[in-house]
Design a protein around this nucleic acid. Sequence first.
DNA 1: GCATTAACCACAG
DNA 2: CTGTGGTTAATGC
Length: 226
Amino acid sequence: MKHSKCAACKVISAAARSLSRAELQLLEHNSVSVDFKRGELIFKQGSFSLNIAYLRSGIAKIHMTGLPGERILRIVRAPAYLGLVSALGDRINQFSATALEEATVCFIDASVFKEFICSNGKFGYEIIEDLCRNELFDHQRYTLQSQKRVPGVIAETLLCLADKIYGRDQFVFPLTRRELGDMVGTSRETVSRVLSGLARDRIIDFADREFTILDKKRLKQISEKG
DNA sequence: GCATTAACCACAG
DNA sequence: CTGTGGTTAATGC
Protein backbone atom coordinates (compact mmCIF):
# COMPACT_ATOMS: atom_id res chain seq x y z
CA MET A 1 0.00 0.00 0.00
CA LYS A 2 1.34 3.40 -0.93
CA HIS A 3 0.19 6.91 -1.54
CA SER A 4 0.08 7.64 -5.21
CA LYS A 5 1.72 10.56 -6.94
CA CYS A 6 -1.31 11.74 -8.85
CA ALA A 7 0.34 14.61 -10.69
CA ALA A 8 2.90 12.24 -12.17
CA CYS A 9 0.42 9.45 -12.92
CA LYS A 10 0.80 8.23 -16.49
CA VAL A 11 -2.69 6.81 -16.64
CA ILE A 12 -4.50 9.69 -15.02
CA SER A 13 -8.19 9.81 -15.94
CA ALA A 14 -9.63 12.46 -18.23
CA ALA A 15 -11.51 13.78 -15.24
CA ALA A 16 -8.50 14.05 -12.97
CA ARG A 17 -6.63 15.83 -15.73
CA SER A 18 -8.89 18.79 -15.21
CA LEU A 19 -8.07 19.14 -11.54
CA SER A 20 -6.06 22.08 -10.34
CA ARG A 21 -2.68 21.60 -8.70
CA ALA A 22 -4.21 22.06 -5.28
CA GLU A 23 -6.97 19.59 -6.04
CA LEU A 24 -4.44 17.04 -7.28
CA GLN A 25 -2.61 17.41 -3.99
CA LEU A 26 -5.83 16.78 -2.16
CA LEU A 27 -6.48 13.73 -4.33
CA GLU A 28 -3.01 12.46 -3.64
CA HIS A 29 -3.49 12.71 0.11
CA ASN A 30 -6.80 10.90 -0.08
CA SER A 31 -5.98 7.95 -2.26
CA VAL A 32 -3.91 4.81 -2.00
CA SER A 33 -2.63 2.47 -4.64
CA VAL A 34 -2.96 -1.27 -4.10
CA ASP A 35 -1.58 -4.16 -6.14
CA PHE A 36 -3.71 -7.21 -6.82
CA LYS A 37 -2.86 -10.66 -8.02
CA ARG A 38 -4.95 -12.63 -10.45
CA GLY A 39 -8.19 -13.76 -8.85
CA GLU A 40 -8.05 -11.34 -5.93
CA LEU A 41 -11.23 -9.52 -4.96
CA ILE A 42 -11.00 -5.75 -5.36
CA PHE A 43 -14.32 -4.94 -3.73
CA LYS A 44 -17.27 -7.03 -2.77
CA GLN A 45 -20.96 -6.78 -3.46
CA GLY A 46 -22.80 -5.86 -0.29
CA SER A 47 -19.96 -3.95 1.34
CA PHE A 48 -19.95 -0.20 1.87
CA SER A 49 -18.73 1.85 -1.04
CA LEU A 50 -16.67 4.36 0.87
CA ASN A 51 -14.16 4.85 -1.87
CA ILE A 52 -13.87 5.05 -5.60
CA ALA A 53 -11.77 2.41 -7.32
CA TYR A 54 -9.69 3.41 -10.31
CA LEU A 55 -8.03 0.60 -12.22
CA ARG A 56 -4.60 1.84 -13.20
CA SER A 57 -3.24 -1.33 -14.75
CA GLY A 58 -4.49 -4.80 -15.53
CA ILE A 59 -7.88 -6.25 -16.36
CA ALA A 60 -10.78 -6.83 -14.00
CA LYS A 61 -14.23 -8.30 -14.10
CA ILE A 62 -17.34 -6.65 -12.71
CA HIS A 63 -19.74 -9.29 -11.49
CA MET A 64 -22.78 -9.69 -9.33
CA THR A 65 -24.55 -12.53 -7.65
CA GLY A 66 -28.21 -12.86 -8.49
CA LEU A 67 -30.75 -15.46 -7.54
CA PRO A 68 -29.83 -17.96 -10.26
CA GLY A 69 -26.13 -17.45 -9.66
CA GLU A 70 -23.18 -15.44 -10.76
CA ARG A 71 -23.35 -12.96 -13.60
CA ILE A 72 -20.39 -11.18 -15.14
CA LEU A 73 -21.49 -7.73 -16.19
CA ARG A 74 -18.40 -6.61 -17.98
CA ILE A 75 -14.70 -6.97 -18.41
CA VAL A 76 -12.74 -3.79 -17.81
CA ARG A 77 -9.31 -2.88 -19.04
CA ALA A 78 -7.20 -0.21 -17.40
CA PRO A 79 -7.27 2.69 -17.16
CA ALA A 80 -10.86 2.97 -16.00
CA TYR A 81 -13.03 3.60 -12.98
CA LEU A 82 -14.51 0.45 -11.50
CA GLY A 83 -18.09 0.63 -10.40
CA LEU A 84 -18.61 4.36 -10.26
CA VAL A 85 -22.32 3.68 -10.56
CA SER A 86 -22.31 1.77 -7.34
CA ALA A 87 -19.99 4.12 -5.54
CA LEU A 88 -22.00 7.23 -6.36
CA GLY A 89 -25.46 5.74 -6.61
CA ASP A 90 -25.61 3.75 -3.41
CA ARG A 91 -23.84 3.45 -0.09
CA ILE A 92 -23.56 -0.27 -0.70
CA ASN A 93 -21.73 -1.88 -3.58
CA GLN A 94 -24.20 -3.52 -5.90
CA PHE A 95 -21.56 -5.71 -7.46
CA SER A 96 -18.06 -7.03 -7.01
CA ALA A 97 -14.83 -6.47 -8.88
CA THR A 98 -12.12 -9.09 -9.22
CA ALA A 99 -8.70 -8.82 -10.83
CA LEU A 100 -8.30 -11.12 -13.82
CA GLU A 101 -4.58 -10.57 -14.00
CA GLU A 102 -2.04 -8.56 -12.05
CA ALA A 103 -3.65 -5.21 -11.45
CA THR A 104 -3.12 -1.92 -9.68
CA VAL A 105 -6.03 -0.04 -8.23
CA CYS A 106 -6.21 3.42 -6.71
CA PHE A 107 -8.79 3.79 -3.97
CA ILE A 108 -10.00 7.33 -3.62
CA ASP A 109 -11.92 8.66 -0.66
CA ALA A 110 -15.48 8.99 -1.94
CA SER A 111 -16.21 12.22 -0.09
CA VAL A 112 -13.22 13.95 -1.68
CA PHE A 113 -14.27 12.60 -5.04
CA LYS A 114 -17.79 13.89 -4.62
CA GLU A 115 -16.44 17.25 -3.55
CA PHE A 116 -14.55 17.49 -6.83
CA ILE A 117 -17.70 16.75 -8.77
CA CYS A 118 -19.50 19.59 -6.99
CA SER A 119 -16.74 22.13 -7.17
CA ASN A 120 -15.07 21.43 -10.48
CA GLY A 121 -17.44 21.44 -13.43
CA LYS A 122 -15.00 20.01 -15.93
CA PHE A 123 -14.21 17.13 -13.58
CA GLY A 124 -17.88 16.40 -13.06
CA TYR A 125 -18.57 16.57 -16.76
CA GLU A 126 -15.87 14.04 -17.56
CA ILE A 127 -17.29 11.67 -14.98
CA ILE A 128 -20.78 12.04 -16.38
CA GLU A 129 -19.50 11.45 -19.88
CA ASP A 130 -17.81 8.27 -18.72
CA LEU A 131 -21.00 7.08 -17.05
CA CYS A 132 -23.05 7.86 -20.14
CA ARG A 133 -20.72 6.02 -22.47
CA ASN A 134 -20.88 2.98 -20.25
CA GLU A 135 -24.63 3.10 -19.96
CA LEU A 136 -25.10 3.37 -23.71
CA PHE A 137 -22.69 0.54 -24.26
CA ASP A 138 -24.44 -1.67 -21.72
CA HIS A 139 -27.93 -0.93 -23.05
CA GLN A 140 -26.79 -1.79 -26.51
CA ARG A 141 -25.08 -4.97 -25.41
CA TYR A 142 -27.95 -6.24 -23.32
CA THR A 143 -30.54 -5.45 -25.96
CA LEU A 144 -28.60 -7.14 -28.73
CA GLN A 145 -27.74 -10.10 -26.54
CA SER A 146 -31.27 -10.75 -25.45
CA GLN A 147 -32.28 -11.00 -29.10
CA LYS A 148 -29.54 -13.39 -30.13
CA ARG A 149 -29.13 -17.09 -29.76
CA VAL A 150 -26.19 -18.32 -27.79
CA PRO A 151 -23.63 -18.76 -30.60
CA GLY A 152 -24.32 -15.19 -31.66
CA VAL A 153 -23.72 -13.85 -28.18
CA ILE A 154 -20.53 -15.85 -27.77
CA ALA A 155 -19.26 -14.69 -31.15
CA GLU A 156 -20.01 -11.11 -30.21
CA THR A 157 -18.27 -11.50 -26.88
CA LEU A 158 -15.14 -12.90 -28.51
CA LEU A 159 -15.07 -10.06 -31.01
CA CYS A 160 -15.59 -7.53 -28.27
CA LEU A 161 -12.74 -8.96 -26.21
CA ALA A 162 -10.41 -8.97 -29.20
CA ASP A 163 -11.25 -5.42 -30.22
CA LYS A 164 -12.00 -3.57 -27.02
CA ILE A 165 -9.94 -5.36 -24.40
CA TYR A 166 -6.96 -6.95 -26.04
CA GLY A 167 -6.67 -5.02 -29.27
CA ARG A 168 -5.59 -8.09 -31.22
CA ASP A 169 -7.04 -11.32 -32.51
CA GLN A 170 -4.96 -13.56 -30.33
CA PHE A 171 -5.21 -13.37 -26.57
CA VAL A 172 -5.11 -15.36 -23.37
CA PHE A 173 -8.57 -15.14 -21.93
CA PRO A 174 -8.38 -15.53 -18.17
CA LEU A 175 -11.90 -16.81 -17.58
CA THR A 176 -13.01 -20.41 -17.18
CA ARG A 177 -15.77 -21.83 -19.37
CA ARG A 178 -18.09 -21.49 -16.42
CA GLU A 179 -17.27 -17.79 -16.14
CA LEU A 180 -17.66 -17.23 -19.86
CA GLY A 181 -21.04 -18.86 -19.48
CA ASP A 182 -21.85 -16.48 -16.63
CA MET A 183 -20.90 -13.67 -18.92
CA VAL A 184 -23.19 -14.57 -21.80
CA GLY A 185 -25.94 -16.07 -19.69
CA THR A 186 -25.58 -19.69 -20.63
CA SER A 187 -24.26 -22.95 -19.22
CA ARG A 188 -20.62 -24.03 -19.27
CA GLU A 189 -21.58 -27.02 -21.41
CA THR A 190 -23.07 -24.84 -24.10
CA VAL A 191 -19.96 -22.64 -24.08
CA SER A 192 -17.82 -25.73 -24.62
CA ARG A 193 -19.96 -26.93 -27.47
CA VAL A 194 -20.13 -23.59 -29.23
CA LEU A 195 -16.39 -23.04 -28.93
CA SER A 196 -15.51 -26.48 -30.26
CA GLY A 197 -17.98 -25.92 -33.08
CA LEU A 198 -16.26 -22.67 -34.00
CA ALA A 199 -12.89 -24.38 -33.85
CA ARG A 200 -14.13 -27.25 -36.00
CA ASP A 201 -15.14 -24.75 -38.65
CA ARG A 202 -11.73 -23.10 -38.36
CA ILE A 203 -13.29 -19.81 -37.35
CA ILE A 204 -11.34 -19.70 -34.14
CA ASP A 205 -8.58 -21.76 -32.63
CA PHE A 206 -7.98 -22.29 -28.98
CA ALA A 207 -5.91 -24.31 -26.60
CA ASP A 208 -7.15 -23.96 -23.06
CA ARG A 209 -7.35 -20.21 -22.39
CA GLU A 210 -5.45 -19.09 -25.45
CA PHE A 211 -7.75 -17.93 -28.22
CA THR A 212 -7.02 -16.99 -31.81
CA ILE A 213 -9.60 -15.61 -34.18
CA LEU A 214 -8.88 -17.14 -37.57
CA ASP A 215 -11.85 -15.96 -39.60
CA LYS A 216 -13.09 -12.66 -38.31
CA LYS A 217 -15.53 -12.21 -41.16
CA ARG A 218 -17.43 -15.39 -40.44
CA LEU A 219 -17.31 -14.73 -36.72
CA LYS A 220 -18.94 -11.37 -37.40
CA GLN A 221 -21.58 -13.05 -39.51
CA ILE A 222 -22.42 -15.42 -36.69
CA SER A 223 -22.50 -12.54 -34.26
CA GLU A 224 -24.86 -10.52 -36.43
CA LYS A 225 -27.07 -13.30 -37.63
CA GLY A 226 -27.58 -14.25 -33.99
C1' DG B 1 -45.99 -33.16 -35.63
C1' DC B 2 -41.15 -32.55 -36.46
C1' DA B 3 -36.85 -29.95 -36.01
C1' DT B 4 -34.05 -26.88 -33.47
C1' DT B 5 -32.11 -24.99 -29.39
C1' DA B 6 -30.26 -25.13 -25.07
C1' DA B 7 -30.53 -26.53 -20.18
C1' DC B 8 -29.61 -30.16 -16.87
C1' DC B 9 -27.38 -34.48 -15.54
C1' DA B 10 -23.76 -37.66 -15.58
C1' DC B 11 -19.42 -39.43 -16.32
C1' DA B 12 -14.49 -39.43 -17.99
C1' DG B 13 -10.15 -37.32 -18.49
C1' DC C 1 -12.05 -27.63 -14.76
C1' DT C 2 -13.47 -29.28 -19.49
C1' DG C 3 -15.58 -32.03 -23.16
C1' DT C 4 -19.21 -35.10 -24.60
C1' DG C 5 -23.30 -37.77 -24.77
C1' DG C 6 -28.10 -38.61 -23.42
C1' DT C 7 -32.46 -36.67 -22.01
C1' DT C 8 -35.95 -33.20 -21.77
C1' DA C 9 -38.61 -28.95 -22.25
C1' DA C 10 -39.69 -24.96 -24.95
C1' DT C 11 -40.30 -22.85 -29.30
C1' DG C 12 -40.75 -22.35 -34.26
C1' DC C 13 -42.21 -23.89 -39.02
